[in-house]
Design a binder for these strands. Structure first.
Length: 136
DNA sequence: GCCAACGTTGGC
DNA sequence: GCCAACGTTGGC
């Protein structure tokens, strides 16, 4: 069964949606958190993930597709952490902001709302569909 | 193995 | 720029 995710990035000093669009396929490296790693390892090829900007924007910019499942992250010397490859999939006509998400009752259980610090989060199918509807 | 102290993240 | 929340570290 296909699963849904949300991955976060800081567009100013890290990686932005426009960078992602330029590159098309890009390894999602640099995750150094065990909860996030667990989620990365649960990702399956062809799963979809929201691409979220933290910091100034605080909105979901679009969707990426997982094109390669978890494999060792070469930027991690300890060899403990993994990364996946993601491919640009769809750009939202209207980015979905955090305040919008918070204003919707059905979305108040989202990990994004309750644990904003986790950088790789699972998203429920129902939540996914609501957000896609908003973004068109 | 517990837990206090510290550092980092991210929304406001 | 502040601070709350959380994760990690390290001493015991």
């Amino acid at each position: 069964m296909k699963q849904f995710w949300l991955i976060k990035t800081e567009p100013d000093n890290d990686w932005s949606w426009s960078d992602q669009l330029k590159k098309n396929i890009e390894p999602w490296d640099g995750v150094r958190n065990y909860a996030a790693r667990k989620n990365l390892q649960s990702m399956k090829k062809n799963d979809l993930a929201f691409f979220y900007h933290s910091g100034k924007d605080k909105c979901i910019m679009g969707i990426v597709k997982i094109v390669k499942e978890a494999y060792p992250d070469p930027s991690d010397k300890s060899g403990k952490f993994v990364m996946v490859d993601v491919k640009s999939f769809k750009s939202f006509a209207t980015p979905v902001t955090l305040s919008k998400i918070k204003s919707i009752n059905e979305l108040d259980k989202m990990v994004l709302v309750n644990n904003s610090r986790l950088s790789v989060q699972p998203v429920k199918k129902s939540e996914w569909e609501i957000i896609c509807k908003i973004a068109k």
